[in-house]
Amino acid sequence: MENHIEDLLPFYALDALTEEEREQVEAYLATHPEARTQLEEMSRAVSVLPRGVPPVNPEPRTKSALLARVAADQRARSSVKSQPSQRVNRFQSLFRPLGFAVAILALMWILLLNLQVVGLNRQVTALHDALAAQSDSLNQIIQKLPQGTPSDTITVSLKGTDVEPQAQGQLIANPTSQSAVLVVTGLPPLEPGKTYQVWLIGGAPVSAGLLTVDANGQGVLIITSEEAIGSFNSLGISVEPEGGSPQPTGDIVVLSDL
């Protein structure tokens, strides 16, 4: 490859390469300083070639034509230079009042945005308060559960999916037991004809019952399984037609590992 490129150097100096070949040589030169030195020597030799041809005095008309073009170009340049100042003055007189109006509008826009920000902040605070209330409700429900749960009972926190991100819950269970208590908050009541269905997932999902939530989005379900709760990997809640489905068909609103 390098020999091939170095063969091209004389033709690069003579400007007798294709565009693709020029690019190859220039890429090579960028990383081979010794090649650049060679090329410089060749280029110096090439640069004198025009002077190896006998000079010929031009016709006077050629110079006259050239200078006429130059003079016309100079006049055109002068004409362009004088116009912008006039345009600037007209621009200023026309747009000064408009500029003031734009400034007023901008100020009003800023005030409006500030008001929106204040409103949004209030909404965020309200949401925080609602979330805190839900957590309090959840804790109250849990406290109402029978006391004295066995020491090997575990509590798994459950989280809502992107469909219902505010949903949360807890599964209280003895992994060796076939029963568990599911407590959920933050799930909106469903329209008539639909229901929440709970699934225990180890391989294929197994229905663990239908969950009803109240107006506050809270619900409790006692789960009874044919296998130990600890044999399942995850728990999910989906939206299904009233009466439930053999397998999940609707949106998954809660999905967590056990």
């Binding site: 002077r51 041809v53 006998p54 010929v56 031009p58 050629t62 110079k63 050239l66 200078l67």
Partner: peptide, 15 residues
Amino acid sequence: LEVLYDRHGATVLGF
């Protein structure tokens, strides 16, 4: 430009 033309015009034309 005129000086450059006078200086090199003949060589450029011959070339």
